[in-house]
Simulated assay, not measured.
Amino acid sequence: MPRAPRGTLSHQVILERATHLMDTEGLGAVTVRRLAKDLGVQPMALYTYFKSKEEILAALYDSLLAAIEVPESPDAGLDGVRQIMREFFRLLTEHPAIMKAGSGGQGDTRLAEVVYALLLNSGIERRTAVGIASSLVRFTIGSASIYQERAGWNADHWSKVRHSLRELPAERYPVMRSFGDDLPEFTQEEVFEFGMDRILRTDLNEPLEP
């Protein structure tokens, strides 16, 4: 990635470089000193735009979340919630290191505002809405965290899994061994869609017990 031309340093240029470093070398590479070196400026130049490394990481997180498109109407219902969570899942799988960059900033608040509006406008009770939103976020982060190591699973992988299951002793693992002959295959995207659908297809109008 080329250095920033002299006199063009900005919030956007710094965050673009930070994103590149995070994606290619990991979050640990995103330091003020490294950013300054890559951009061809002195470290003090970055402090004109950000007070600290932590502020850069928070802005990086918020800038990526800002790219998630949200429904324009609060009446988009549960389909709108699905749209947001799919975009969130895509973001986390494309930038896995961002999960360690922090949360709780304006980016999270923006998405939470829309998700809760969609849930409440669908007639869902407030406590249930909190439970649903929290479960979706945790499920999406968990699904994205194991995506990289499992995204390449193909027919050959599933064939090996079935073979290994058939090798299990029947008296000790009767159920698991039975899957050796009939194990449904899922892509990671299909697993994500399946889990999200299950969370949103419970009896959403039944309040959770406190």
Rank of each mutant, 00 (worst) to 15 (best):
R138L: 15
S122H: 08
A112I: 01
L136I: 01
P71D: 08
L183Q: 02
R166H: 09
A112T: 03
Q188C: 11
E72R: 14
S135A: 15
T128W: 06
F186D: 05
H163Q: 12
V191N: 15
V70N: 07
Y147N: 09
I132E: 07
P174S: 11
E167W: 10
R82E: 00
I84H: 13
E193H: 05
E149H: 14
F88Y: 13
R166Q: 14
V115R: 07
E125Q: 00
R86H: 11
K160S: 15
L118H: 10
R166T: 11
G195T: 03
G152Y: 12
F88W: 05
A117Q: 10
A170W: 08
Y116M: 13
L200N: 04
A112L: 07
A117R: 12
P169N: 06
K100V: 02
R82D: 00
F192H: 07
S159Q: 01
I84E: 07
R150Y: 15
G142F: 02
L118E: 07
R198H: 00
L168V: 05
T109I: 10
L91F: 09
D203F: 08
R138T: 10
N121K: 09
S178R: 08
A112P: 00
R138I: 05
N121C: 11
F194Y: 15
A155I: 08
V81T: 11
E185T: 07
Y116D: 09
R90Y: 04
S178N: 01
G152S: 08
V114D: 02
I98K: 13
K100L: 09
S103I: 06
G80H: 11
Y147M: 12
G180Q: 08
T93F: 00
R162H: 07
I132H: 09
W153M: 15
G180V: 04
K160H: 14
Q188M: 15
A76H: 10
L111E: 05
W158V: 00
L120Y: 15
D108A: 14
E171N: 12
L183N: 05
F179I: 12
R86L: 04
G123H: 02
V175S: 06
T187F: 14
E171V: 03
A76E: 15
A97N: 02
V137Y: 05
H163S: 07
E190G: 13
M176W: 04
E185N: 01
L78G: 02
G107L: 09
R82K: 14
I199K: 05
G180A: 01
A151P: 12
T128E: 00
Y147G: 13
A101S: 09
P71L: 09
L183R: 03
R172H: 11
V130T: 06
I84V: 14
G102C: 12
R177G: 12
